[in-house]
């Protein structure tokens, strides 16, 4: 059966281009990587960044953490302050001098590096070349663990059920929802539960959450209720912007759940428990 949605042959000049080829991944683990913690992790979820380091080190990779890193520039970029975003982006680029992969603890920040730096520097050919090369070696953490490290996780934890929230830009720009699901699937004692309108935005959107608190609040209230109704004991996400939003709302609404970064969840689940000596 034909899947053609119309019967006219398209004019030759207008035949659609093939869709973006799926990303190809290096066949070997690199010796070094840059870890990009992100500003939200730095201040509010540092343990997630540390657990990312532990996971990467366990794969035999040397983690480099440039101490002068701050923010990818996304908040200013999405708020329309393009020049400020550009200056901050430039200062981050200056830190990434080696051609090591850049592993980012958040899908939306990884998306900023991969998809939007080229827009910021579209008028600077030299920087643009640098940015394009960087985009090619930028990975969101779960993608890097799964596709580049080809990590094999051994679950050491008790049986549990989790709900997974994926940030919108992570989902749309980095396919993080698929990568995170695959990682969770490797954990034999972890059941991932769907929640209502799972792919819908949690309402964070950076400055949107404070500029439009009524709309954002309605969105996060629906999200926290859906997560709670899923029956999951734990909530995980690979994006701490969303977690800041969701956890803050859980607490405000007295919902006894607390979202955890995927890195922390994976690290904790795969630690061999010290058995007491018999």
């Amino acid at each position: 059966m034909s899947h053609l949605y119309y019967n006219a042959a398209p004019q030759e000049t207008r035949v659609a281009k093939p869709r973006k080829a799926p990303r190809s991944y290096p066949t070997h683990k690199p010796a070094h990587i840059y870890l990009y913690g992100t500003c939200v992790v730095d201040l509010f979820f540092p343990e997630a960044g540390m657990d990312a380091i532990h996971l990467l080190e366990r794969e035999g990779i040397q983690v480099n953490f440039p101490q002068a890193q701050s923010c990818c520039g996304q908040p200013a970029y999405t708020s329309g302050y393009t020049q400020q975003a550009k200056d901050v982006a430039r200062s981050q680029l200056a830190l990434l001098t080696e051609d090591w992969p850049l592993v980012v603890c958040s899908g939306s920040c990884a998306g900023m590096f991969r998809e939007h730096y080229s827009d910021l520097f579209k008028d600077e050919p030299e920087t643009l070349a640098q940015v394009t090369a960087l985009a090619e070696r930028t990975y969101e953490l779960s993608e890097f663990l799964l596709k580049v490290c080809q990590v094999e996780l051994t679950d050491q934890g008790e049986a549990t059920q989790v709900a997974l929230h994926t940030s919108c830009s992570a989902r749309r720009e980095m396919n993080t929802h698929l990568h995170a699901r695959e990682l969770l699937n490797q954990l034999t004692q972890v059941e991932r539960l769907d929640h209502d309108h799972e792919s819908e935005c949690c309402g964070f959107g950076g400055t949107f959450s404070v500029r439009m608190p009524d709309i954002s609040g309605a969105m996060v209230a629906d999200k926290t209720q859906a997560l709670q109704k899923s029956g999951a004991q734990q909530v995980v996400s690979a994006d701490c912007g969303c977690l800041l939003n969701i956890n803050g709302a859980f607490e405000k609404q007295n919902i006894p759940l607390l979202g955890q970064h995927l890195a922390s969840f994976l690290w904790q689940r795969t630690q061999v428990k010290q058995e007491p000596n018999t």
Partner: peptide, 19 residues
């Protein structure tokens, strides 16, 4: 922010320091 959230508390040490 606190219309919909409890106030966020920064961690005791930043990732920069811990790393």
């Amino acid at each position: 922010w606190t219309q919909n959230h409890s106030a966020p508390k920064p961690a005791k040490r930043s990732l920069h320091e811990l790393a």
